[in-house]
């Protein structure tokens, strides 16, 4: 192996693990054209997060799925975050978008208040959202309006409460019997 090749390999091994994000001018254009869709753009750790008002999540997802330059045709992940019972807004729902054509990623974030933990379902945009949203509903208690089949998925149907909320104790309230 020659020295140049070795240097190249060493540089590759040292490079921080990060993935491409959509071009900044496209994101800014989207923000200026559709002011109601994006309330904040956060760039940190090489990742881009768009904070989206709750009412426009389906609209922006539908747009990003096919808009030239974005083409986010795959939804990688949906997850909920509980910031703690005293925080307001208390809940976050994170959508991790991925493009199988441009290979870049984007995170959409919806903030939800404690009294009204509802957000529109994006199953109509990507069908893979079905199970992700069921999981988020089951463990975090976020209700996805318009979901075709919003049932618990991991915990039993008669389970009380939502286990990943911060005020749910680690060991539960009482021993659960499966029989």
């Amino acid at each position: 192996m020659d020295i140049e090749r070795e240097k190249e390999i060493a540089a590759g091994a040292r490079r921080a693990a990060s993935y491409p994000v959509p071009p900044a001018d496209l994101v800014n254009a989207l923000r200026s054209e559709q002011g109601a869709w994006v309330s904040e753009v956060v760039e940190a750790f090489g990742e881009v997060t768009l904070v989206v008002p709750r009412s426009s999540i389906v609209a922006i997802c539908t747009h990003l799925k096919s808009a030239p330059g974005f083409e986010f045709d795959m939804l990688s992940d949906v997850s909920g975050v509980d910031r703690g019972p005293e925080e307001e807004p208390r809940f976050e729902v994170n959508y991790h978008l991925f493009s199988t054509k441009r290979y870049h990623r984007l995170r959409l974030k919806v903030l939800l208040n404690q009294e009204d933990v509802h957000v529109q379902s994006v199953v109509g945009v990507w069908r893979t959202a079905n199970w992700h949203e069921r999981e988020t509903f089951d463990l975090m208690g976020v209700v996805f309006d318009g979901h075709p089949d919003l049932r618990r998925i991991l915990l039993p149907d008669d389970w009380q409460g939502h286990a990943l909320r911060k005020d749910f104790p680690l060991r539960g309230y009482e021993p659960y019997s499966l029989t």
């Binding site: 993935y19 990742e47 992940d77 991790h96 991925f98 990623r105 995170r107």
Partner: peptide
């Protein structure tokens, strides 16, 4: 902060 790190596992992303 928050990060999302994808890798290619043996079964997918």
């Amino acid at each position: 902060g928050e990060v999302y790190q994808p890798i290619e596992g043996s079964k997918g992303e």
